[in-house]
Design a protein around this nucleic acid. Structure first.
Length: 260
DNA sequence: AACGAACACAACCGCCAAGGC
DNA sequence: AGCCTTGGCGGTTGTGTTCGT
């Protein structure tokens, strides 16, 4: 079995990219666009693997990349998205324009993990350290985790200083999958390898509030317990008997320090 | 000044799914 | 239906830099 390498390793450079290589890659993509990565290196005169070219372009050379330090707002958004999605770095990156999955992954591992630990929060379960154990993992493995994630993303649950205020979660069709089916091996949250519930296949949309959005008005957030077939009061404090205009239900945010 | 440890981040590796043939 | 190619993803490693002794 096995598979052929994506390139002939004997004839490819490895390691850090030189300025000249960067220039060649950028020039080629500007002229021809992002096409076939496998054939690109040869066409561009690069002694690189196609995957390496793609990575270099995606992570460092793309013109729309935002360089520089992460802001506090981005920090908080990453933390909330990680609570919801786990180690789905590409999905998280999709909510942070100009940031790449690799960048976010590195930032998480080097900064945010420590930041959460300093706050006394387990970076994997997003629960207070020592307050969960297997129970916390089990909770994260249930649909209730999705509800908690909604709470984490709810404006009222956001950190006071954070302008990241609106999160609308809409249920995706059950048959759709945007993670390429990799969730069984790497979806985040608990790292214990315990059995997990089926992925929720959330079609997640997160955005900053529009400039003219009155922040004092309640923002719609779907209670995922409803999606999971739970009734009012069975797993949350949402107002199930007052459905919103399009089936949305408003979630009562958790108090600070309150966890499900 | 020299050395080692810790940190930050760029890059690589292996795996998987989708799509074409 | 099965194989192969390709793009994409997450985990891990390698290397340069900074900090502490």
């Amino acid at each position: 079995m096995g598979r052929s390498p994506c390139c002939e390793k004997a004839h490819t450079n490895k390691g850090a990219w030189t300025k000249e290589e960067d220039e060649r890659l950028v020039a080629y993509i500007r002229a021809h666009g992002e096409g076939c990565w496998r054939s690109l290196p040869k066409a561009a005169g690069l002694l690189r693997c196609g995957k390496s070219c793609r990575l270099r372009w995606m992570n460092y050379l793309r013109p729309d990349l935002k360089r520089g330090n992460f802001t506090d707002e981005e920090d908080e958004l990453i933390i909330r998205l990680h609570a919801l999605l786990g180690n789905k770095w590409s999905l998280i990156a999709g909510q942070l324009p100009g940031r790449t999955d690799n960048e976010i992954k590195n930032y998480w591992n080097t900064h945010i993990k420590r930041k959460l630990l300093a706050r006394g929060i387990d970076p994997q379960t997003h629960r207070p350290l020592g307050a969960g154990g297997a129970g916390a993992d089990a909770a994260a493995a249930t649909g209730i985790a999705a509800h908690r994630a909604a709470a984490l993303l709810h404006p009222a649950a956001a950190a006071p200083a954070s302008p990241v205020a609106l999160a609308v979660i809409k249920p995706a069709p059950a048959e759709s999958s945007d993670d390429g089916g990799r969730s069984s091996s790497s979806s985040g949250g608990a790292s214990t390898g315990e059995p997990r519930c089926p992925d929720l296949n959330l079609d997640l949309s997160v955005g900053l509030p529009a400039a003219d959005t009155p922040t004092s008005q309640p923002q719609p957030v779907v209670c995922l317990c409803y999606r999971l077939g739970l009734r009012a009061g069975e797993a949350c404090g949402c107002q199930a008997d007052k459905p919103g205009p399009q089936g949305f239900r408003y979630f009562r945010p958790l108090e600070q320090g309150q966890y499900i």
